[in-house]
Simulated assay, not measured.
Amino acid sequence: MADVRVTYDNTANAAYIYLTQPQVCVRAAYMYACDPVDVDGMINLDFDEQGRLIGIEVLAASSKLPEYLLRRAEQLDVEGA
C-alpha cells in the first residue's frame, strides 16, 4: 500500500488527505464540495488542472474518519508550534 500524507487539526476537527507524491507540490485548480446532506457533513474534493483528484478535505473529521488514521496523522495544532 502506498504511503498517503494525512494532516489533522484537532482544534478545527479538520483533516486533509493528500493524494499526490509527497515531494511534488500540486495546486488545486478547482474544488468540488460534496453535498453535506448526502454525506452528513462537509467533504471537499480538490482536483488539478487535468481533472485528477489530488486531495480530500474532511470537516468534522472525528465523525467521518477512523480514529487510528487521525492519531497517526500529522498534527497541525500541536501546542507551541
Rank of each mutant, 00 (worst) to 15 (best):
N10P: 10
P22M: 15
V58D: 07
L69C: 05
Q75M: 03
I43E: 05
D48F: 02
A2F: 11
L76I: 02
V78Q: 09
Q50K: 13
V58C: 04
V58A: 04
V26L: 07
A12D: 03
L70N: 06
Y8L: 08
L69Y: 01
P36W: 03
T20P: 09
R5C: 10
A15E: 04
A2M: 14
Y18M: 14
P22Y: 07
I54K: 08
D3Y: 14
D40Q: 14
L45Q: 02
Q75I: 00
N44P: 04
Q23S: 13
Y18T: 13
P22C: 15
R5D: 15
L76R: 00
E74I: 01
M1H: 10
N10F: 06
L70W: 03
N10G: 10
A33K: 09
V39P: 05
R52V: 12
C25Q: 09
V6I: 15
L69G: 00
I56P: 06
F47P: 03
L70C: 06
G51S: 02
L19E: 09
I54H: 08
T7I: 08
I56C: 07
D3G: 15
V24T: 11
A81R: 14
A2Q: 15
P36K: 06
P66A: 08
L53C: 13
I43F: 04
S63E: 14
G51D: 02
Y30I: 02
A2D: 13
T11V: 06
A14Y: 04
G41M: 13
Q23N: 14
D9F: 02
D77V: 00
E49Q: 14
E57C: 06
E74A: 01
V6S: 05
V24E: 12
D48T: 01
Q75W: 00
L53N: 05
Y68K: 08
A81D: 13
A73I: 03
N10M: 05
P22T: 15
L19D: 11
L70I: 04
C34G: 02
A14P: 07
A73N: 03
S63T: 14
R71L: 03
V37H: 09
A61C: 05
D35N: 13
Q50E: 15
E57Q: 12
Y8Q: 11
R27G: 10
I43L: 07
I17K: 08
T11W: 01
Q21A: 11
R52N: 14
N10C: 08
A29D: 12
A28G: 15
